[in-house]
Design a protein around this nucleic acid. Structure first.
Lengths: 217, 217
DNA sequence: CCATACATTAATGCATGCATTGTAAAATAC
DNA sequence: GTATTTTACAATGCATGCATTAATGTATGG
């Protein structure tokens, strides 16, 4: 495995773990020291991460880890809403055999269990799985790539927002409705239900972020 | 201006101009020679272009310019459809002053003129302008970035498809309907009209690509 | 004659060093 | 004391060179 890829992974971890907090600046040389390699592979990794919107290379000022404002989060949620809803619609009309939908249902079941147990981490993991599986079933590779990228950004915010908002006990009813629509081949229903669900979730998240003045995440 | 950015621009031009045809492979060293700079900035530009989905770095085989299959084009159109329709909806409810909508209407007028004159290039340019302006009015920066990226890929295909399909004389009626809905603040109408318009356009393009067996673009 | 193993070649991954340039600090003038 | 100019420093952009490694061709054995 190449050093560039190692640097890419490590830097992502460091960003998500908060070792490189949003808004902070870091010099290429320092990062290379920390990662124990030369500047070249680090620089290459940084260019990729810049393309993914996680940071910005600012000559002579170091790389700036980009903060996510409530308005950014609203933009991201809007993109996710549309692309996931499209995926739900396509998943419903793609003619997937019932067995292909099992992972989706499993994710919903796991969310129910996590809610019953009050386990935020488990819920969060199962929710990720649900959305990822939904998009996979949609069958559009570009949608998957975009959603993956945006989900990364949301994940940075969720660690904070999860603790600040009520456990989403009701949201799983929506997930189940979407699942049933997909299973029954009702594309329009699947898409519209998911869109409504997501637009509602967006309101809640953005509200939380604004109330707590969480400008930096 | 940095060599990396120059390389980025030049390589893009070369791809769109067909100097680097889809499916072809090129060595870093050769590209560096052609661009009259060292491998480092070329390599950095190539990494960015890889992130944008225009090519793939294949160790020991050179960079491969990615072809776009009809199925790829279908995927891209689906993404554009959803994100542009969202933009139309948001543009309608954003409370833009009428003056802000002038460029949009101008683009539509120019398309009418181009159709009347049978000028394919002028129509293509005005159509680009319409879509770009629509997304700008939608006010979501991430949507703009994604649409820009995907539009690049469509542009590679259009040079071919434009000559193969009938002049889209009817499509401008749809554009005008979308414009009116935005002007009148009817978000739902704007979004749904644009979505229907785009889904129709997708069918035509994908049909053309498949009929002509245009696997590589 | 075919398959497998080895050798050769060349492209890439990466380290390193240097020139450029932006920034900040210091000094000078007002 | 403040503002402006100059100077010095240091981070980056990029060229270069080397080691690694994969692909191709060759040779040998079955």
């Amino acid at each position: 495995m190449s050093n560039t890829l190692r640097a890419l992974g490590k830097l992502r971890e460091m960003i998500f773990a908060g070792d490189l907090p949003a808004g902070s600046n870091h010099l290429e040389t320092e990062l290379a020291m920390q990662l124990n390699m030369s500047r070249t592979p680090v620089r290459e990794a940084l260019l990729m991460l810049e393309g993914q919107g996680l940071l910005k290379l600012q000559p002579r000022k170091g790389v700036r880890i980009l903060p996510i404002s409530p308005s950014d989060m609203a933009d991201i949620y809007d993109v996710l809403t549309e692309l996931e809803s499209l995926s739900a619609e396509r998943a419903a009309t793609a003619g997937h055999p019932p067995s292909a939908l099992a992972p989706l249902e499993a994710a919903i079941d796991d969310m129910d269990k996590a809610i019953a147990a009050g386990d935020l981490d488990a819920w969060s993991e199962a929710d990720d799985r649900f959305h990822k599986e939904l998009v996979r079933l949609g069958g559009n590779g570009r949608v998957q790539a975009i959603v993956d990228m945006m989900s990364d950004q949301v994940r940075r915010a969720r660690a904070i927002t999860l603790a600040l908002r009520p456990l989403p006990t009701k949201s799983n009813e929506d997930h189940r409705k979407v699942f049933q629509a997909i299973r029954d081949g009702h594309g329009d229903v699947a898409g519209q239900t998911h869109r409504a669900h997501r637009r509602h979730a967006k309101e809640i998240i953005v509200d939380v972020l604004e109330k707590h003045r969480l400008r930096f995440i």
